[in-house]
């Protein structure tokens, strides 16, 4: 079953006085995702439409957009499931705009890498399974796919442009929780400031929009608990 859906798409080219919206109508079936619809627009209607995409299955994190005002990975949002005759598509917020639906991820990655989290972690799936000969333990990639949805949804990032942000602090917590090549002290020191974990106002929007089970809000709160705990101990003269 194919249905004609209108997309109201955020447009901006460098040198434009201001952004505007363009409307495109695209036939969508039950498999059509918002990402595919955007690619169809680029192929059939406007080859200048800019967007980021790569894996098409919620693993790379490049296709994050605001769809009807909500941060989503466009590759896993089926157009007809949205149930609206018009679908509004906008770039992520709290990141500098490059053009159309593309934002500059430099600042995001500067923060994210500063946490120094190794990307390979121990796999917790199938906990009873014995690894085969030659493999010490099963490993897997970290959950975070660096999509930036959390940063876009965060009300604090909107009011403090230096805020470290949810993804970076979730990475810091992982570096503390499973240190691997270090003791996590660097990550704890790094978040312990006014643009770090104490800036969070506990709106939980990061965890609401996270498409990859990271739960950044819990990570930030865990960092706080750890820091509060060691401050209290220091207060009583106990060093750890």
């Amino acid at each position: 079953m194919t249905k004609e859906i209108t997309f109201k798409v955020f447009r901006y080219k460098q040198g434009d006085p201001a952004p505007h919206y363009d409307r495109f109508t695209v036939p969508c079936d039950e498999n059509t995702t918002v990402l595919i619809a955007m690619q169809d627009i680029r192929r059939d209607q406007d080859p200048t439409l800019m967007l980021r995409h790569s894996c098409h299955h919620a693993s790379c994190g490049t296709c994050g957009m605001r769809i009807n005002g909500k941060e989503e990975l466009s590759c896993v949002v089926k157009v007809l499931d949205l149930g609206t005759p018009t679908v509004t598509v906008e770039p992520l917020e709290n990141l500098p705009l490059i053009s159309d639906l593309v934002v500059d991820m430099t600042g995001f990655y500067q923060r994210y890498t500063a946490a120094r989290m190794p990307y390979i972690r121990q796999s917790e799936f199938n906990p009873g399974a014995e690894p085969p000969e030659g493999i010490d333990r099963y490993t897997r990639y970290e959950n975070c796919i660096e999509c930036g949805l959390c940063l876009s949804a965060c009300p604090v990032a909107g009011s403090d442009a230096e805020y470290l942000g949810p993804a970076a602090m979730a990475a810091a917590w992982r570096a503390v929780e499973e240190p691997r090549n270090g003791d996590g002290k660097h990550a704890l020191n790094w978040v312990d400031n006014e643009h770090g974990c104490w800036r969070c106002h506990i709106a939980f929007e990061c965890s609401e929009v996270c498409p990859s089970n990271v739960d950044p809000a819990a990570g930030i709160m865990n960092l706080r608990r750890k820091l509060t705990g060691s401050s209290l101990l220091r207060l009583f003269g106990i060093k750890r």
Binding site: P118, Y119, I120, S123, P131, Y138, T139, R140
Partner: peptide, 8 residues
């Protein structure tokens, strides 16, 4: 190094 889930 650090790019593969080396589980065979």
């Amino acid at each position: 190094p650090g790019t593969f889930e080396e589980n065979d």
